[in-house]
């Protein structure tokens, strides 16, 4: 069965590297980058993008609202294929 896929977009300049999204992610997608933004913060990024399910837990706990979440859901199978 095809699973839902997700992706996040982090506003790198607004991220303060607090690490809360890393702890909230149930599929361990997010890590803090070794690189820093212009303020010197290690910003969040998707280390394992394939594992993201778009649950938005990271965005829920992000104090700076820098995470935008997208979720792709597989189209439901035609009804006759399952009921026939």
């Amino acid at each position: 069965m095809a699973k839902a896929r997700g992706a996040i977009v982090v506003d790198v300049e607004g991220c303060k590297g607090c690490d809360l999204c890393v702890g909230a992610c149930p599929t361990h997608v997010i890590e803090l980058s070794r690189k820093v933004n212009s303020k010197g913060y290690h910003f969040a990024y998707m280390e394992h993008p394939d594992a993201c399910i778009g649950c938005a837990h990271c965005a829920m706990v992000c104090p700076d609202s820098v995470i935008t979440v997208y979720r792709w859901k597989p189209a439901p199978k035609p009804r006759e294929a399952t009921t026939a």
């Binding site: 896929r5 993008p49 938005a56 609202s65 995470i67 935008t68 979720r71 792709w72």
Partner: peptide, 22 residues
């Protein structure tokens, strides 16, 4: 597309948006 061959560009589209800053 199925979920395994999906590219990030296919997911990050306005119709798939589930959360953004208010």
């Amino acid at each position: 597309h199925d979920s395994d061959t999906l590219l990030l560009e296919d997911i990050i589209r306005p119709e798939n948006l589930v959360f953004e800053k208010t």
